[in-house]
Design a protein around this nucleic acid. Structure first.
Length: 506
RNA sequence: CGGGGUAUAGCGCAGUCCGGUUAGCGCACCUGGUUUGGGACCAGGGGGUCGUAGGUUCGAAUCCUACUACCCCGACCA
């Protein structure tokens, strides 16, 4: 019972109200259409800032809930630090300020007044701040300034804090979820007594992110370390997870930084060790943002709309009743409610779409567009035969299920869908990962195939920069445990001992 | 910030070149009826300072000027 593509096309072309640009025709437009028409987010009246709509926010809340639980399981506590950061804090860590200076929003005044010409309101020049405030692009500085007062002794360590917050980076060009001027994220900031402990923390959180993407978002990731060019401003080492989108571009999905003692020194955060000696503390920070929403959308969705992995879908199963007469509705309704109750005993989130203002076909199309993993349709024929029609979003297949043990069958189906999405994404990545040895091959692959390209690099920032200028491809990551392989840099021909991962990226 | 484009009902558009009734159309919305196993149909109805501010003109959605916002492409970045 499979709906073939011609049938789908027929339905779409004849009735379609929500037009989705074809993914193959214009990937960016497809993405934008999807975000807006699936009601995940909208552009707002504020340049570069988005409105996250209830359906999109529900997905973000699921992401938050799962990660928050993992953070707490790994010993972290949530706290909240100010949105505003005194400008002077920023200049304390040289590379940090250099990295963020160009994209900071600055608060200079604290009052408005009626304009002298009587038209509207103007900034009151008399209300100029003594010290200007930066709207946080990230919170290292305010947090480390605070940690100074929290940390005295090795007994205060490790300090394991996370905050869920919004940050602002004044980007020139923005895209819904992928790059917005304001975005939501979590930022972990930890302080440790030893370098090894801090390194272990950075590695642990990278692992938490990788596990989350793979098992919940169904997106396979590469783990690695950033080249100096791509390193976080102020970090000693930046670890990252990179995912491959369906257009062959890479997306950095999360980062975890080993900050060494850079911020401890800049903000004079010392502790007394067991030998009663003063030492600077060792630090990490790590974060993921609403950008994950972009990854989720781009990794799985198709020309019929959004495709959501069951573990993050706000609605996992939608039940659509089909009926003509009131008597039919009564019996269908009874069965539908029974099924809903059964599914809920397994913790499945079910929407019973019993709106009488929309026809079944409309509901099918709508829930399909919004990526609901499983749809159950139940009509008079089903009631008679004790069956339902089950359609899965990932493959668009339909099947008839006996209602007996429906909750077990659907639970199993959801697991299958989750797995299938991961496997599809994994296959895609494998089919779009290329190994090249010459410059011509490299350019050709980046230009015509996209994807991840494994190549030798001489290890210098200059070479990476030149490659970026010539091909727009950057080193997405250096594998954590690179396989030893002697070769020559694709650009300079200098010796190299292992391959790194190149790609064009978001 | 550079290049290009757009702005007319909630959404998508026509009308603008070549100024001239009451600014149209599709979808959506409201009412009534018939319908309901893949985006229903019929009838009736509501909704517009034509992005903003000036200007030209007897008359401006239409011509001119400035401004603003958004989208796409680049440089920058998660």
């Amino acid at each position: 019972m499979q709906l073939n593509s011609e049938q789908i096309l027929y339905h779409k072309s004849k009735f379609m109200a929500k037009i989705l640009t074809n993914r193959e025709d214009n990937y960016s437009q497809w993405y934008n259409d999807l975000v807006i028409k699936a009601e995940l987010a909208d552009n707002s009246a504020v340049r570069g800032c988005m409105v996250i709509k209830p359906y999109g926010y529900a997905i973000w809340e699921k992401i938050q809930a799962i990660l928050d639980k993992r953070f707490k399981e790994t010993g972290h506590q949530n706290a909240y630090f100010p949105l505003f950061i005194p400008k002077s804090f920023f200049s304390k860590e040289a590379s940090h300020v250099a990295g963020f200076a160009k994209e900071c929003a600055v608060v200079t005044h604290y009052r408005l007044k009626n304009s002298p010409d009587g038209k509207g309101i103007v900034v009151d020049e008399d209300a100029k701040l003594e010290e200007e405030l930066i709207v946080r692009p990230t919170s290292e500085t305010i947090i480390w300034d605070t940690y100074r007062t929290w940390i005295q002794s090795y007994r205060d360590l490790p300090l394991l804090i996370n905050q869920w917050a919004n940050v602002v980076r004044w980007e020139m060009r923005t895209r819904l979820f992928l790059r917005t001027a304001e975005f939501l994220w979590q930022e972990g900031h930890t302080a440790h007594a030893t370098e090894a402990e801090a390194q272990a923390e950075a590695a642990l959180m990278l692992e938490v992110y990788a596990e989350f993407l793979e098992t919940h978002m169904a997106i396979p990731v590469w783990k690695g370390v950033k080249s100096p060019n791509e390193r976080f401003a102020g970090a000693v080492e930046t670890y990252c997870i990179e995912a491959l989108m369906q257009d062959g571009k890479a997306l950095q999905a999360g980062t975890s930084h080993f900050l060494g003692q850079n911020f401890a020194k800049a903000f004079d955060v010392k502790f007394v060790n067991k030998e009663n000696k003063q030492e600077y503390v060792w630090a990490t920070s790590w974060g993921v943002s609403t950008r994950l929403m972009g990854a989720l959308i781009m990794a799985h969705s198709d020309n019929n709309g959004l495709v959501l992995p069951p573990k993050l879908a706000p609605i996992q199963v939608v039940i659509v009743p089909i009926f003509k007469s009131d008597e039919q509705f009564a019996s269908v309704n009874e069965k539908a409610l029974y099924i809903k109750k059964q599914l809920e005993t397994k913790g499945i989130s079910v929407k019973y779409d019993n709106r009488d203002t929309q026809k079944p076909g409309f509901k099918f199309a709508e829930h399909e567009f919004k990526g609901v993993p499983v749809r159950i349709a139940i009509g008079p024929r089903d009631v008679e035969e004790n069956t339902v029609e089950v359609a899965r979003r990932d493959t668009l297949e339909k099947a008839i299920y006996q209602i007996t043990d429906i909750e077990i069958k659907i639970e199993h189906l959801l697991e299958q869908i989750q797995l299938n999405l991961f496997n599809k994404a994994m296959n895609f990545r494998e089919n779009n990962t290329f190994t090249v040895d010459t410059w011509d091959e490299f350019v050709d692959t980046i230009e015509h195939k996209g994807g991840f390209v494994l190549a030798h690099w001489d290890g210098t920032p200059e070479t990476e920069q030149r490659i970026k200028e010539m091909t727009k491809a950057t080193i997405r990551l250096i594998p954590l445990d690179p396989k030893k392989e002697e070769g020559r840099c694709i650009l300079t021909g200098n010796p190299s001992h292992f391959r790194v991962v190149f790609a064009r990226s978001y």
